[in-house]
Simulated scan of single mutants.
Amino acid sequence: MNNIIFLLLAIIFETSATTLLKVSDGFSKLLPTIASIILYILSFYCLSNCLKTVPIGIAYAIWSALGIVLVTLVGIIAFKQTPDWAAIIGLLLIIIGVGVLNLFSNMAIH
C-alpha cells in the first residue's frame, strides 16, 4: 500500500510544481521558482520510493497520465484555459491507455 501512497504523493507534488512553473513566469519570480524546484525534488523522491515495488512502466504511465489530467484541470480552473475537442479526446485516450495497461498487462506489482 505504501507504493500507491508514494505514487499519489509524487503525482500531487509534480502537479503542484508544474502549476508553480506557470506562476513563476519563466523563473522570474523567486518564491514560486524555489517552491517548484522543491516540489519536483519531493516528487522524484516519492516516485523513486514507489519504484521499489511497482514496475517502472506502470508507475510512469500512471504518474504521467494523472499528472497531465490534473494539470489540465488546474489550467481550466486557475488559468481559464479551455481545452478544445482534440485535447479532450487526447486526454481520454491517455486515460484509456493507462486503464488498459493496468487492467490487462501481466506486469505485476510486487
Rank of each mutant, 00 (worst) to 15 (best):
N106R: 05
L103N: 05
L21F: 13
A87H: 09
I76F: 14
N102A: 12
Y45C: 07
K29Q: 13
S36P: 09
K22H: 13
L7M: 12
S24H: 04
I5Q: 12
Y45K: 07
D84W: 05
E14M: 03
P55W: 11
I5P: 07
F79G: 01
L73N: 01
S24W: 04
I94Y: 02
C46G: 04
T15W: 05
L93V: 10
L92Q: 03
G67D: 09
G26T: 13
P55Y: 14
F27D: 01
F44I: 15
A35R: 08
Q81D: 12
I68S: 11
L7Q: 03
S64Y: 06
S64K: 00
F13C: 15
F27N: 14
T72Y: 04
I94T: 08
I58N: 01
A35H: 08
I88N: 02
V69F: 14
I58P: 01
N3P: 03
L66F: 10
N102H: 04
F44T: 06
L7E: 07
I77V: 15
V98T: 15
I58W: 07
L51Q: 03
L101D: 04
F104Y: 14
G26C: 09
C50N: 11
F104S: 09
Q81H: 06
V54Y: 04
T53F: 14
T53D: 13
I4G: 00
F44Q: 10
L70P: 01
L70K: 06
T82L: 15
S28E: 12
P83S: 09
L30R: 09
T15A: 15
I41S: 13
I88A: 02
L101T: 13
T18Y: 06
L92A: 14
L39R: 03
I94C: 02
T82I: 14
S105C: 13
I37H: 04
V74D: 06
A17W: 02
W63V: 01
S48H: 14
V23G: 05
T33M: 11
Y60R: 11
K22V: 10
Q81N: 10
Y40G: 13
N3S: 15
L30V: 06
I62S: 06
C50D: 05
G99M: 09
G97R: 07
T33C: 11
I34M: 14
F6Y: 15
